[in-house]
């Protein structure tokens, strides 16, 4: 009876079938992402509204108490200021340096290009913990940096780098620049190589200087990549953890502690306060989102 229409009614059309197969292919990944990523995020959101012992969490009253408390938490505010200090000083220096290195290495007449590229990229192949420990040793009171500066008669007596707030912050920033400049440089280099050399050639014929070429050709063409690296660096800096833990242990007197380090401390070192820690990590998420939106609005005029 169903065959009266010539084609079976219950069969799907070709388009529908393809659609269904497509969804089936998507299904495993979707389920995994929802299960392993979105569900935990949702749970974290719920936990950030709760208080009490880890095994007996109850909704706090008022509901946003954990978020309200943050404004009175001196250590949290300190960690926020520290993180933004790193962000404001380190990211611009690093991106400018990466741009300079990239344009140097992009020159056609440069010898040993491969060697230089490897050297500059190598730092980001080192593990975060090990490079932090190496920097701690370098900047120790009787470490190499002090010995070097004293032999060169730049310093009269050793500086206790990691034991005063400003120098400790400076050491972290130097370490971050060392670790991440090469990484960003690779992005710029790749983008620069996609710019046709004839563009520069014709610009030179028109009498454009190297600076003009940089500001009028390279940077405008690299804009999307600069945006990507800026967002990635901002994101990474806001989540800074390893350097604070391993290089300075957050000290002296919380002068270098980052938000992620403080969140970890709240959960695992101090008396566990899961609700408050979850709330703080949501603040980090919101900050990342806001900063990314600003950067996209400023940087992308399409």
């Amino acid at each position: 009876m169903t065959n009266t229409a010539g084609q079976p009614r219950k069969r799907l059309t070709m388009h529908q079938r393809q659609n269904l197969v497509g969804w089936l292919f998507l299904l495993p990944a979707t389920i995994l992402i929802i299960w392993l990523s979105f569900y935990p995020m949702f749970r974290a959101l719920l936990i950030s509204l709760m208080k009490g012992k880890p095994t007996a969490l109850t909704f706090s009253d008022p509901l946003f108490r954990n978020y309200q408390r943050m404004m009175q938490d001196k250590v949290f505010i300190q960690s926020l200021i520290n993180t933004f200090t790193y962000l404001i000083i380190q990211v611009p220096i690093m991106l400018v340096l990466a741009m300079i290195f990239a344009s140097l290495l992009n020159r056609h007449d440069l010898k040993f290009k491969g060697l230089f590229r490897t050297c500059i990229f190598l730092p980001c192949a080192t593990a975060l913990v090990s490079y932090s420990i190496i920097f701690r040793t370098l900047f120790a009171y009787d470490g190499m940096i002090n010995a070097m500066l004293m032999n060169m008669h730049i310093l009269k007596e050793p500086v206790n780098w990691l034991n005063s707030p400003n120098t400790a912050k400076a050491v972290i920033i130097i370490a971050l620049i060392w670790r991440w400049t090469g990484y960003n440089m690779v992005f710029y280099l790749a983008a620069m190589q996609s710019i046709d050399y004839s563009v520069y050639e014709s610009a030179r014929i028109d009498g454009a200087s190297a600076t003009t070429q940089l500001f009028r050709i390279t940077i405008p063409l690299l804009k999307p990549i600069i945006l990507v690296t800026a967002i990635m660096s901002t994101n990474g800096t806001l989540q800074l953890y390893d350097e604070s833990v391993n290089l300075t242990q957050g000290g002296p007197a919380n002068a270098t502690i980052t938000m992620s380090h403080y969140i970890y401390n709240t959960t695992f070192i101090s008396n566990p306060n899961f609700g408050y820690a979850a709330a703080m990590s949501f603040v980090v998420l919101i900050l990342v989102a806001i900063l990314s939106v600003i950067q996209m609005k400023v940087g992308d005029k399409r």
Binding site: K51, G52, D73, S270
Partner: peptide
Amino acid sequence: EDTVNFAMGF
């Protein structure tokens, strides 16, 4: 003392 009291008041 304020810092610790803050942590204890969760």
